[in-house]
Write a protein that binds this DNA or RNA. Sequence first.
RNA 1: AGGACUAUAGCUCAGUUGGUUAGAGCGCUACCUUGACAUGGUAGAGGUCCCCAGUUCGAAUCUGGGUAGUCCUACCA
Length: 922
Amino acid sequence: MDKTFQPAEIETRWYQEWEAQGYFAPQGGDRAYSIMIPPPNVTGSLHMGHGFQEAIMDALIRYHRMRGYNTLWQVGTDHAGIATQMVVERQLEAAGTSRHELGRDEFVQKVWEWKEQSGGTITRQLRRLGASLDWSRERFTMDPGLSEAVQEVFIRLYKEGLIYRGQRLVNWDPALHTAISDLEVISEEEQGHLWHFSYPLAGGEGHLTVATTRPETMLGDTAVAVHPEDERYTHLIGRTVALPLTGREIPVIADDYVDPEFGTGCVKITPAHDFNDYEMGVRHGLPMINVLTDDATINDEAPEPYRGLDRFEARKRIVADLDALGLLEKTEHHTLKVPRGDRSGVVIEPYLTRQWYVDARAMAGPAIEAVENGSIQFVPKNYENMYFSWMREIQDWCISRQLWWGHRIPAWYDDAGNFYVGASEEAVRKEHGIAADVALRQDDDVLDTWFSSALWTFSTLGWPEETEELKIFHPSSVLVTGFDIIFFWVARMIMMTLHFRQEVPFHTVYVTGLIRDEEGQKMSKSKGNVLDPIDLIDGIDIESLVKKRTAGMMQPRLAKRIETATRKQFPDGIAAYGTDALRFTFYSLASTGRDIKFDIGRIEGFRNFCNKIWNAARYVLMNCENEDCGADGSADYSLSLADRWIISRLQETEAEVARALAAYRFDHASQALYEFIWNEYCDWYLELSKPVLWDQDSSSEALLGTRRTLIRVLEASLRLLHPFMPFITEEIWQTVAPLAGKRGPTIMLQPYPTADDKAVDSAANADIEWLKGVIVGIRNIRGEMNIPPGKALTVLLKNGSEQDKSRLEQNAPFLRKLARLEQISWLQDGVEEPVSATALVGDLEVLVPMADLIDRDAELERLGRETEKLHKEVARIEGKLNNASFVEKAPAEVVAKERDKLQAQQQALAKLQEQEQRIRQM
RNA sequence: AGGACUAUAGCUCAGUUGGUUAGAGCGCUACCUUGACAUGGUAGAGGUCCCCAGUUCGAAUCUGGGUAGUCCUACCA
């Protein structure tokens, strides 16, 4: 074995082996456990959020697989309609063409080509993470099978009246030329203006003043509204105003919606271009005049001078023209929320079109109930509130998109404007008796990507067929995802699955926090703070990192800033930490309900942890290979105190890990493992094994007992750790397992260690604590007094109990080795106590005679610090016990505990003060 | 505007039902290449648990009110 752990070669070798051998496929067990991966964008690449979530899923999957569950981790990718289409369109643009030039069929063909070409990236990256996904069952949302499920769902929902087609205002993306759902609109505050315009009353005496942030929509105004009880305006209700620039007259109407306090209390109403105005238009039967085109330029409904102008150009012109007419009263600065498309970034227009909708209100009821009655539980629980509040006010879901990449809507139109929903043109003709000479044209639109994702848990298992897999693996066990897609995906999955399967899609939703950079900023390309999980695994030099972060930047200034910041943070690039270290870092940071600031320092610590494990294994193998380690169980052995103790601690660790995983506390699980392996197995147990292994006089039973324990505890620890660090554990386990009497082609399919209560040995724990106390006490004196580490000390013990005496007798060799002692013995009765530095272990006094090696003043200072601490503590407890109501009201055991504590501390204090006296008299 | 979450060591974070001498990792200081590991070992320093009030014998922990930050939802033209 190398002196340091080298992950790179090990990782690829083992992953290929596992996959080739089919270890990832479900096998065995009556109990099933399944997770459906949130399908990543097929042409995307892995980011830290993926890395984090996949690490968690893989730990759960490996844990259950090892526990003997029939375990499925379903893998697949999403066609990601808008995102993918945009990428390919950009490529076409770069090549000097466009999708419209290609035509629909050829364009879709191009997208498929792009999918074939780049679709492997993310799945390769998933493999690098060690994710034990069942690749033999890989699915894609546009596979024939899944497409069939999509069509089936659409047709059935339509026939049940839960999908309908309607004309209403939608969120229109003028750059992408498609409707999008309300979830895909991001509203953020931006600086804008509030313009006040005069609308003259028809008839010429006076005017109303309206305030607007969007002057261009005035071309489509069909009313002015005031509050019905606003005394300033009640007399005008029912009259009309002459809408400037248009020559139209529009009524003044009354509506509660108007806030008399805001602006002038008069609102211009544009039902075709504003959601609230639309509602009011419907209430009052107002005409709806659409003045925009698909591109958000002014259309022919508007007066001639404005036709063909871009909306923002039109805005300027209208303000200028109104000003010229003396109708612009004032312009105020105003911050407003501007809705932008989450993909395109352009301002979204409320736009009147015909679209397909899912009646989400009807489907939300059972979905709310499933969470209320606990059929589905969110971890952490507070996300349930978020879910409820959204579900209770859910809007109908606009599912049609004016794109070419996606599941085409299974509806056909005839020239008379009738439409028919069915599986195919033939099916539609047959069902509705449409003659062959009647032309039918399929709907041009495709479905929202989330429509197919909503079916993911059951469509991947073969639905609408009643497959065996559906029976076994559905509902799935847990969904692991970020809170940002609870509405997009989780809620819709719950609705769809309940409707079509009459069962929940999953029992638990584990909601992870967001991975942010070390300053708590969201990672984004434009901020240039993105970390690629693969770079943390393989490492990257600074030049490549800078290049990667600044590639494709539109603004050179931004690129410069990113470069400077990157060079400052990573002057030497990023080291290769390996997958296991990265994964363990994710676990250690995964406390629930909290975003994660990813600090690069953490991963280094866990890389070191890998190295520690590696070297511990080297030590164990060095002492066990080619030796009898009790693998066949034939020879007699005896267990030392240390052996019994580490076995006992292993059980406790196993219990702790199980507890943590049951609660999705990966941070606790990782911490328990880290502490056990490093602070107990390596720091203490391996050291305690040395006096046995290196002693010429050790009995063969003792040697065997120690070797046996060394190897078996290591072997079990590797299995315990495997779900979190799959690669290093497999690599070491292959060599270690046979020595521990275990065989198998892979650690992956070995049983997961479970705690054996009978092996918990509290006496051994107490004895080791004593041993540690004595050693640490002596080390402390050595460290504080600057006694050279090589100098062997003579130590005297004083005031010991019978138990102390027997403990010393049994452990003297360990003390000598670990504390570097020449001799350790009891202070003889009647012998003058030498002036010493003192450590206390309970009542036992550990004396290091000062002779000439200890500095008198240094020891006095050290004792001073100790006694000061004790003084404070004694005073604190005395205060408590002198409080009558504490003694009276606190539970007796608490009071007794305080009394014991006080006594112990007082004794300790007295002893140290005595020592202080003796030294002073020197 | 409504709601959720967060505030603990220089930094990143743990802290179960109120009773701990408030912990870990990183960083820092000193010493050490001892036959697994310097990606290491030993020892040490470092905290007004955001503030105020309350409940309680007792509060990092419970309640109320602030302050600061993050996020979600809705939105006034």
